[in-house]
Amino acid sequence: MATVILVRHGRTTANVSGMLAGRTPGVDLDEVGRAQAISTAERLADVPLAAVVASPLERCAQTAGHILDAQSAAPTSAVESAITECDYGDWQGQPLSLLSLEPLWTVVQAQPSAVTFPGGESLAAMQARSVGAIRRWDAAIEAEHGPNAVWVAVSHGDIIKSVLADALGMHLDLFQRITVAPASVSIIRYGSTRPTVVTTNSDAGDLSWLQHTAPAADAPVGGGAGTQPAARAGS
């Protein structure tokens, strides 16, 4: 099975101002966000990536650019519209402080599967398109590069949370229990019988073990030995 690394874009100017950016054009990484993206790229530098697939929005393209720049060999680079941000409709561009006063806010928190944003998309539709795209890309990359292939999808917080919820077998109504911070890494391996969630919301630590650890077909009973960072030269 291939391995997909879900990377959220780094912090943006909208994150800092408390605006729900949605698909608003021109929302860029701020200085902290650029540093976060570079740090994540450095964590992935020792992992030969088969592909880097990104949402078309600027903040994801900028984050993906740092990841691509840190690779010694050039992975396939692609844009995937199906992992773009949720269409928040009339909520887009509004301050979160005001949106939190809306009656729909409580439903977003407690019953996301029932939410359709006014003038926009339902969270259920968002999850369906994003999960479908990730699984489709994963199957295509494994078919082309083999079961040990590792690839990156750069996307958005709610998108990644919904993909993780699906992989964990969680109902969409529980996806608010998952945290996905800016530039964080979450890792999924889709197997023939079930997905395996390897890591969620990771923002530090060595990832070079990904190039040395072959995915196991079955879950290790008792938990197994875990993963170990690759030995460095001279150590």
Rank of each mutant, 00 (worst) to 15 (best):
G93C: 13
C60F: 00
P95F: 14
S155E: 05
T199F: 08
H156P: 04
D46E: 13
V150C: 14
W91L: 12
R189Y: 06
M19G: 02
M170W: 15
D30G: 10
E102L: 07
T179C: 02
D218H: 13
L207N: 05
D203H: 07
P25G: 05
Q94I: 02
M1T: 14
T200M: 14
P118M: 09
V107Q: 15
D30A: 09
N148Q: 13
L57N: 01
G33L: 05
S155N: 10
L210G: 01
D158K: 06
H145D: 13
E144P: 01
A51P: 07
H156F: 10
S77M: 09
W209L: 02
E42A: 14
V27F: 06
P182W: 01
A37G: 07
E31T: 13
I188N: 03
A233V: 13
A82P: 01
L174S: 15
I134P: 00
L6K: 02
S202W: 03
M126H: 12
N15W: 11
I5E: 12
A139H: 13
S72K: 14
S235R: 06
A230M: 09
T3P: 08
I5W: 12
R194W: 03
G10T: 02
P229H: 09
L6D: 01
A37L: 01
P118H: 08
S162G: 08
G191N: 08
M19I: 15
E31K: 06
A37V: 07
L168P: 09
P25Y: 10
T24M: 15
V32M: 10
R194P: 00
T213N: 10
A128Y: 04
A128W: 07
